[in-house]
Structure formats: structure tokens, C-alpha cells
Nucleic acid binder design. Structure first.
Length: 681
RNA sequence: GGCGAAGUAGCUCAGACGGUAGAGCAGGCGGCUCAUAUCCGCCGAGUCGGGGGUUCAAGUCCCUCCUUCGCCA
């Protein structure tokens, strides 16, 4: 990113779909954008940081209907899940855009009218198969067994008149641009992916939906019977916030430094749809499109359609927002996938933050408080050892190195570079031994402590974009000035002698790394598994340490079986206390919908009303016993608090209880109808 | 099937321009005691997925095969 050395740094996250609950994927992307924004502010660049919510589309409309409220009221409520979350994660966005805001509607309609006037949008016939769940059209040959190729859900054949954007004519220009700007799409593997995609002819893009089918969208300015396709609407948010068609000067100023941070799942929409839209609108293309990877939690990708979530709120509440931010930035290489396990998280927290950084601050502070009157000592002539120069050289050379790495998006390497300074300071303390020298040579002991504290101040300032809260606190606690606002202002020797060192408690308390034991059938129940921990537990705790079968996940298929189950019936399970039984959340659920799972002859996908705000998805291995149509409206017994599990790509959020014999399965059902969600005991 | 990426110590991963394999964690040994049983030092022969090739020299370039993953609206 050599071209970011000066000028504006305008960083965007995707706008998040308002129907989702925020999960680690949203959290990571937004925190990464925040870290980049904070670093670029430190680099002295004017920085503008945008995030927001995507609020139109079919699913919003449906969810609103289900809740019995207007679509607007629904999104007004839902967007808070995101907007209110970011401050708690120390996200410093300058703006939060909602696609339902008048400022945005205006820009979308203006852009559409412009393209319509220029003949870049035309009306045409569309024929295809529509999947409501993903809001996409598919050609006949794309369907899998007549079902949606992405979800296996129902599709409807639709023939309708629609409006199309002449995307096809921009293919050559786009390919040329990507070749001319090798780092336009990052990382390189994603760039290759887009180039590969563009080897085929590019089609025109359908940018409308008839109002008869979907009302909740921005009306086309030139045909009120249609609303705008959500992507065409959503992508323009980046321009709206910069002032397009409102404040030309401001827009031109910000837009020349725009960087889009996205997940790899929306690479095509950004690098093809969006860039050709910009070409058609005769606007400059973004500097960079940066596609990050996914966090794999229990070997399952986090995604909006699966709904499996590790709640970032829960992680930060448990261990602190700064540790969470540190882990996310240190562990993931931008662009690649990474595993999220609580064990890895706690190791980072304990080793890097508690042992190295926190302990360094603590050991220095306690020593100063005990032996140096509780104030930063005078540097004097230093420690009287050659290590001073070495330490100072490393610290003062670090800002430039960190900047280089951050501009190259190697955040994990930048973090590691700073942590190497922290480790160097710990070594420096061992080398200069101020705690020994103080008895014989107090001036040199003071000098050594000053050097160590000053080195620590450098490290904390360079980590401040990652951990803004803790770094500010710690700087204050060691008597240092507040975090610098520009790296140029980070100068060796600015730590004022005589300032009070007030640090009291260990800044990063250690947490025990839980050990997960094999689920011994005769033993007490295993400790409650933490979110995202099951995979690692299985890997490490398989019987006799054999990882194979555990990894292959013989998976409860969303159905528990009683009766003559396979195995040895004489091996009766150990008795459990009533409390153990009561820990199970057994409830009556009403099947709202049922359908076969693609590529499986055993599984059914059920939507089950368990008396909650929204139905749960249950993947049950009962397809051989029941036809989907026979289940709808019937009630069965479910385990409602079983850890959710992905089966055949679908998240199963509860387990149906059934017995079986040689003739197959029989699910347990109440003898008379009960309210959905009724507890069983 | 087409295109692309990855396969390096028990684990997680680094390894611009080709020159006799590195870090962290885990494990072993030792040291210090200011500090959160923390910190510091020492200990790593791992066919760098298999095979072939180019080269004085190849995880590092070329070919091929295997495995895993991604993209193909």
C-alpha cells in the first residue's frame, strides 16, 4: 500500500445485514477496520472510517411481517444490535450509515436516473428460478435436484420483466484495471480469483425487483412499479457517506483514498458489480479492495445464513475487549482463514499479555514503588551497560517498522514486532539487574529502570491502535503521557522523570486454560464446553488420543434415539442426580416446515417453533421414517439446550427425541396438543 | 471439469531477489527473584507432501502426481 503514505485514508467495512445478529465475523472485520483507521491516524493521515447496516430486501420484509410491525420499525429496532455494539468493542467509526436513510435513498435514485438517462440501464425479460432464502436467481442447469444449489431450499420459476445494468460492456476495462493495479484486489489469491472469473463473458446485471413481489426497497426513479436490487442499493453506501451528489468537494477529497475492507464471500459483488457500477457512473475506482478470511469456529465457517455464532460480546465480557482485539489481530493473517478456539485465545492472553507485557509493567511498577519512591526515576547516565543503546535503538526503530508492516496489511507481524520489544525489555531487566544494583549503585539502577519504562512506553504507544483501552490505562499507570496522536511525536526521553507510578493491579489477570477431558460415559458430566471449544476438545481428548474419528465427527444427526440403540444394552448408563436431568431443556416443539436435505437420504431440515421469538432450524435423521409433508403441524419432544451443531452444512439448533426398533424410528409426541415450548419434566 | 491456493519440527505458523532450515507453544535442563509459579539462558538431524528436471547450489524456479481448501455469477 505504498500509495497510502500521504493523503486521505478512507476505510469502509461492508454494511451488515440488519437481520443478522452480530457475530465474530462482523466483529473481526470491524475491529480490523478500526485498527487500520487508528494506525493511519497515527501515521498522520486524515482518516475517515465508515460502517453501517444494509436494511432493504426480502428477508427484512418477511421478518417484519412475522413480528407484526412495519419494515421501517423492524430495521429501526434491529440496526441497534450493530450500532450499539461497536462502542463496546472500542470501534472508532466516524459515521454509521443505514441504507434506509434519506441521504442514501437520494443517492441511489440519483445514480439510477443517471444511468437510465445514459442508456446504461435497459428493460428486459428475465426467466429463471428464484430462491427466496438467498434472494437470488438461478438458471435451470444450476439447480440441484430442482432445489436451490446453495441451500437446498425451494425455488420458484419466475418469468418477469426487469431492469438490467449493462455490466457486460465493462469487462475489458475491468480486466485492464486489475492488470494495471496489481494490488487493487488483495490478497493476490483473491485477485487471481477475480481474473479467473472474468475470463468468461460478463452478463448484464438485473438491478430491479417488481414491487408485486418485494416492496421493501428503494423505488426506481423511472418506474415506480419496481424497487432496486439490494446489492445495487447497498454498494452505493460507500459513496453516500462521502457526500456524492451532495458535496462534490468533500466527495472528491475522501474518495481518492477509499479502501474497502470486505469478507471473501462478497469479493465478486465488490470487485465486479461495484467497480463496473463506478465505471458507469464515471467515478474513480477504490484504491484497494481487501478481502479478509473467515474465523473457523469448531471447524465451521461463520456465516450469516447459517446463524452459528460466537458472540463477541460474550468473549469481551469474559476476558476483556482489549484481549479480544489483541487475539483477533495477532492470530489472523489478513486474507487467510484462522481458527478461533477459546484455548488459543487464552494462550495468547496468558503468554503475550499476562506473562510478557502485563508482568513487565507490573515488575517495573512494583520495584519503583518499593525502592524508588513511587516515581519515574531520572535517566541519568543509564544503566552503565552497553544494553542501553541496544534497547533504545530497537525501540526508536520500531515505529517505522510497524508503519511499514501495517501499510502492507501484515498486522500480525506488526503486533509480533512490538511484542519482540516487550521481550527485549524483559531481557534488558535481567541483563541490567536494577533490583540488585540498587544496593550498590542507585544511579545506574535508576537509569536502567528509566530505560525499561521508556521502552515500555514505546511498546504501549505502538499497541494502542490494537488495545486502545488498556494501553491508555497502562501508560497513565506508569507515569507516562497519554498515547501520542502521531508517531512523529513518539520520541525517546519524553517519559517525565518524577511522574507518579500508580499501577496497582496486574493489568492482564491470568486465566486458567481449561483442559477438556474425554467424555467418559461413567464419569460425571464434562465441564460445560465453552463456545467454539468443541472441536479442539474432540481433537485433544479423543479416546486413547486418537484424533481421527473425533475429527470426522460421527455427529448426532439432530436426533436422539432411545430403545435398542446400537451398542451394548447391558452397559446401563450410570445414575444421574435430578439436577443433571433438570439441566436438560426438554420442550414440546411444533414443526412449522419440513424439507429433505440435499444429498442426504436420512436427513430432514425442520423449522420448529419452541415457543421463542423465532423458529429454530433442526436437522434430524428421520427422513426414512417420515415424509416432510406428514410432519408439518405436528408436535414432538426436543432437547432445546443442546450445543448447536452443523450437519450437512446446516446448523441444527435442537434435537428431536425418538425411539427405534427394527422397523425404524418413532418420534415422541404429546398425546394432546400442547403450547409450543411447553416444558417436559 | 476449468482456474487458483496450500501441504515446512508434537502443535500453530515464518521463511523478498535460489546458497548448506527458523519463531512461538508444548517438553527437558539450568539461572534470577523486582514481578501475575512470572522473567532470563541452554537443548530442535524436521525425507521442507511424493517423483522428476534446471542449476555449482532449490522449501525457494520448471514439469508431474497425491492430499486439502477456495472460486466458477
Amino acid at each position: 500500500m505504498s500509495d497510502t503514505h500521504s493523503g486521505v485514508f478512507y476505510i469502509t467495512t461492508p454494511i451488515y445485514y440488519v437481520n443478522d445478529r452480530p457475530h465474530i465475523g462482523h466483529g473481526y472485520c470491524t475491529i480490523l477496520a478500526d485498527v487500520l483507521a487508528r494506525f493511519h491516524r497515527l501515521f498522520g493521515q486524515e482518516t475517515y472510517f465508515l460502517t453501517g447496516t444494509d436494511e432493504h430486501g426480502q428477508k427484512v420484509q418477511e421478518a417484519a411481517v412475522k413480528r407484526g410491525m412495519s419494515s421501517q420499525a423492524h430495521v429501526d429496532d434491529m440496526h441497534r444490535h450493530f450500532r450499539d455494539l461497536w462502542p463496546t468493542l472500542h470501534v472508532s467509526n466516524d459515521d454509521f450509515i443505514r441504507t434506509t436513510e434519506p441521504r442514501h435513498v437520494r443517492v441511489v435514485q440519483h445514480a439510477l436516473q443517471l444511468l437510465w438517462d445514459r442508456g446504461l440501464i435497459y428493460r428486459g425479460e428475465y426467466e429463471g428460478f428464484y430462491s427466496p432464502r438467498v434472494e437470488k436467481f438461478f438458471a435451470a442447469d444450476e439447480l440441484v435436484d430442482g432445489k436451490c444449489p446453495e441451500t437446498g431450499g425451494e425455488v420458484h420459476q419466475i418469468k418477469e420483466s426487469n431492469y438490467f445494468f449493462r455490466m457486460s460492456q465493462y469487462r475489458d476495462a475491468l480486466v485492464a484495471h486489475i492488470h494495471a493495479h496489481p494490488d487493487f484486489i488483495r490478497p493476490e489469491s483473491r485477485r487471481n480469483e477475480v481474473l479467473g472469473f472474468l475470463k468468461q463473458p460478463l452478463q448484464d446485471l438485473c438491478i430491479s425487483r417488481p414491487k408485486a413481489r418485494l416492496e421493501w426497497g428503494i423505488p426506481l426513479p423511472f418506474d415506480p412499479d419496481y424497487v432496486t436490487y439490494v446489492w445495487f442499493d447497498a454498494l452505493l453506501n460507500y459513496c453516500t457517506a462521502a457526500g456524492l451528489y451532495l458535496d462534490d468537494e468533500r466527495f472528491a477529497h475522501l474518495w481518492c483514498g477509499v479502501h474497502h475492507l470486505i469478507g471473501k464471500d462478497i469479493l465478486t459483488t465488490h470487485s465486479v458489480y461495484w467497480t463496473t457500477m463506478l465505471m458507469a457512473l464515471e467515478l474513480p475506482l477504490p484504491r484497494h479492495i481487501i478481502a479478509h478470511g473467515w474465523w473457523l469456529v469448531d471447524r465451521t465457517k461463520m456465516s450469516k445464513s447459517l446463524g452459528n455464532v460466537v458472540d463477541p460480546l460474550a468473549m469481551k465480557d469474559k476476558y476483556g475487549v482489549d484481549s479480544l482485539r489483541y487475539f483477533l489481530m495477532r492470530e489472523m493473517v489478513v486474507g487467510l482463514d484462522a481458527d478461533f478456539t477459546e484455548e488459543a485465545f487464552l494462550k495468547r492472553h496468558n503468554f503475550d499479555l499476562a506473562n510478557d507485557l502485563g508482568n513487565l509493567a507490573n515488575r517495573l511498577a512494583k520495584f519503583v514503588q518499593r525502592s524508588m519512591g513511587g516515581v519515574v526515576p531520572a535517566p541519568g547516565e543509564g544503566s552503565g551497560t552497553p544494553h542501553d543503546d541496544d534497547l533504545r535503538a530497537m525501540a526508536t526503530g520500531l515505529p517505522a517498522r510497524v508503519r511499514e508492516l501495517v501499510e502492507d496489511l501484515r498486522i500480525e507481524a506488526a503486533v509480533e514486532a512490538v511484542m519482540n520489544l516487550v521481550r527485549r525489555i524483559n531481557r534488558y531487566v535481567a541483563e541490567t539487574e536494577p533490583f540488585k544494583v540498587i544496593k550498590t549503585d542507585p544511579a545506574h539502577a535508576a537509569g536502567a529502570v528509566y530505560h525499561a519504562l521508556e521502552g515500555l512506553r514505546f511498546a504501549l504507544n505502538l499497541l494502542a491502535p490494537i488495545m486502545p483501552g488498556k494501553c491508555s490505562e497502562l501508560l497513565a499507570a506508569i507515569g507516562a503521557p497519554p498515547p501520542v496522536t502521531s508517531l512523529d511525536a513518539l520520541r525517546w526521553g519524553d517519559l517525565p522523570a518524577g511522574a507518579a507510578v500508580t499501577l496497582q493491579d496486574a493489568p492482564f489477570p491470568r486465566h486458567e486454560v481449561p483442559t477438556f477431558q474425554a467424555a467418559d460415559p461413567g464419569a460425571a458430566p464434562a465441564p460445560a464446553r465453552k463456545p467454539g471449544k468443541a472441536g479442539a476438545a474432540a481433537r485433544e481428548a479423543g479416546p486413547s488420543g486418537a484424533p481421527g474419528p473425533a475429527d470426522a465427527t460421527p455427529a448426532p444427526m439432530g436426533v436422539a434415539q432411545a430403545g435398542v440403540a446400537s451398542g451394548d444394552p447391558s452397559a446401563a448408563p450410570a445414575k444421574v442426580t435430578y439436577d443433571h436431568f433438570a439441566a436438560l431443556d426438554l420442550r414440546v416443539g411444533t414443526v412449522l416446515a419440513a424439507e429433505a436435505v440435499a444429498k442426504s437420504d436420512k436427513l430432514l431440515r425442520l423449522d420448529v417453533d419452541l415457543g421463542e421469538a423465532r423458529p429454530r432450524q433442526v436437522v434430524a435423521g428421520i427422513a426414512k421414517a417420515y415424509a416432510p409433508a406428514d410432519l408439518v403441524g405436528r408436535q414432538f419432544l426436543f432437547v432445546a439446550n443442546l450445543e448447536p451443531r452443523k450437519v450437512f452444512g446446516l446448523l441444527s439448533e435442537a434435537m428431536v427425541l425418538a425411539g427405534h426398533d427394527d422397523d425404524g424410528l418413532a418420534a415422541f409426541s404429546p398425546l394432546r396438543p400442547l403450547p409450543a415450548g411447553a416444558k417436559a419434566s
